[in-house]
Each structure stands twice: as C-alpha cells, then as structure tokens.
Write a protein that binds this DNA or RNA. Structure first.
Lengths: 151, 151
DNA sequence: AATATTATCTTAGCAACTAAGATATTTTCT
DNA sequence: AGAAAATATCTTAGTTGCTAAGATAATATT
C-alpha cells in the first residue's frame, strides 16, 4: 500500500474543497450576494420551498437571522413570502426559480460546460469509479458532521 | 454519451463541495473558531509563516481585518507576531504548529482515518483515475475564479 | 536631509449575527 | 367554549468582524 499516494489524494481532496469555496465566493460577489447568502440560496433552490423555521434548522441560523436573510432575498425578488394555508403563523419561502436562474446561470455557464466536458472525457467504467468515490466521501463527511454537531 | 450520468456526477461534485463546507464549519465551531478563521488558520498551517501583508493579499481581506484576525489567533496562542529582521515594519505571523495541531487533529482524526481507508480501498490504477479527475476539476475551478475576479 | 513610499495598526461606520422578548396563531386542557 | 400553553415568526439591543480611510513607524529615494 502506497501511503504517500493515499496522503496525496487526501490532500488533493482538501484542495478541491478549498478551491470550490473560493469559486463559490467569487460567483457570489459577481451576483451581488455574500458567500453565505449564495450558499443558502442554493439550498433553497435545491430543496424547493420551505418554511422559515425549516430554513433556520437546516442552516443553523437563529430565526432572527433567517428573517433578515429572507428580507434580503425578497428585496432582490429571488423569493417571496407566503403564509401557509393550514397554519397562518408559518411563512413559506417560495424561491423564484426563474429570477434566481437568470442571476446565477450566466456565472456558472462556462464552469458547467467545462465540467461536463471533463466528465465526458472519462469512460463510463471510469466514471463509475469516480462516482463511487464521491458517494462514499460524502457519506463520511456527513457522518463526521453529524457526530460533531451532536456531541 | 450518457448525459444523465454526466449531469449526475456534476451534481455529486457539487454536493461534495457543499458537504465539505458543512463539515469544515462544524469542526470550526468545535474548535471555538468561526468558519473563516478556520479557513485562514488552515492556510497559515499549509503555507507556513508569512507577513501580515501577504496574508491580506492571499485572503483578500483588508489589512485592518488581518490585524483583527491575527489578534484573535494570538490570543488563543495559535500564532505569534514577530518583526522581520530585515524590515522592522513587517510583521511575520509565525504559526504555532503544535498548538494548532493540538486543537485540530482530534477533530479531524476520525475523518482522516476513514478517508484514507476509503482511498486505500481502490486499486492504484483506480486511484490514478480519481487523481486525474481532481487535478483537472481543480484547474477548472481556478480558471473560473480568476476570470470572475478579473472582470 | 527632506520627501515619498511601504507595512501595519487604529478608528468610525456598517452589515449580519445571536439572545431575548413581543406578537400572532394554533393546540391543549379543563 | 374559554383560558392557558405552545409554536412560528418578527423585532430589538448588543456583539462581532468587516471595509475604508487615515495614523504611525520604518525604509527607500532624490
């Protein structure tokens, strides 16, 4: 077993994560968002509409901070507030997918094209290897995060 | 060409980045650091000692913000300030590797073990594939970031 | 030797966060 | 049903960490 190689891949993985944060922040700035706002906007986009409380739990922000977050997004017409029909205390945050896409897609376009080209340069057997690595790596990070947040 | 598979890997890559940010922040909290402080501490650890100005350039923070950053680290005995011998205006930030390790290693230990185990579960041919993917993916992200920061 | 430049620090002001409490609505208990 | 408790979000006061601009101290230039 080549320990140097293993360590090198681990380091590469770390660099990959770090570089992705940098890119994420650069895109945020161009979109007129802070790094954290960009992160949570992606969250809303991925998960779809949710209540303010759910967003608070998912992000770890206090409810007050979430109020401010939604205010900023609403001012930019990226989401809108809607009272839940079954419980009028609840505020449903409805992402305006079209506006969000208009804002972000142009900034991601080139990156996306290049990434897909990179992936396509591998055989499907090779892609499966990369996929299985990612799947397990993600699993490990989630385990680690959950353990830390519990303790 | 299987476009669905390509898109899936791209999504997986995105999830990988996102999850790593979550873990990074969870570790920061446990260490009594903010997410950004953790990031820049890792930076110092990786690059070794540097002047305050270099850290400002590398992080994109203003010199004032760097002063505050070093103050927080120094209070925790994670770095110390040292005037440069050749130019006494310069402040060299010397990381206290031992203290930083004492703080962070226990939090990363399990993650590291699991990661290395995961990597070791692949053949060296497979590892080379993963490596080449990472190398190019990192390159693409750096290109994208640089373009955005220039424009 | 005087002036300009450079490296860091300080200060004032701002944005976004937390903690605690206010408000409005719903649920539970008699 | 009506009072009390619980819940979901918002508001407010105070804190933190950031930027921009200017202060301070050391070095380089003319």
């Amino acid at each position: 077993m080549d320990n140097d190689l293993i360590r090198q891949i681990r380091k590469l993985n770390q660099l990959h994560s770090y570089t992705s944060i940098q890119m994420h922040e650069a895109i945020a700035r161009k979109a007129g968002l802070s790094g954290t706002d960009h992160k949570y906007l992606g969250f809303l986009l991925q998960k779809g509409q949710m209540t303010a409380g759910e967003l608070s739990n998912l992000t770890g922000l206090t409810t007050g901070a979430v109020t401010g977050l939604i205010d900023r997004f609403e001012k930019k017409r990226l989401v809108k507030r809607q009272f839940a029909e079954d419980d009028r205390r609840k505020v449903i945050i409805v992402p305006n997918t079209k506006n969000i896409m208009t804002l972000l897609v142009p900034l991601y376009k080139e990156f996306r094209t290049k990434s897909e080209k990179l992936i396509a340069s591998f055989s499907s057997k090779e892609i499966k290897i990369i996929e299985s690595y990612f799947l397990r790596a993600i699993e490990i990070m989630i385990e680690t995060t959950n353990k830390l947040n519990k303790k």
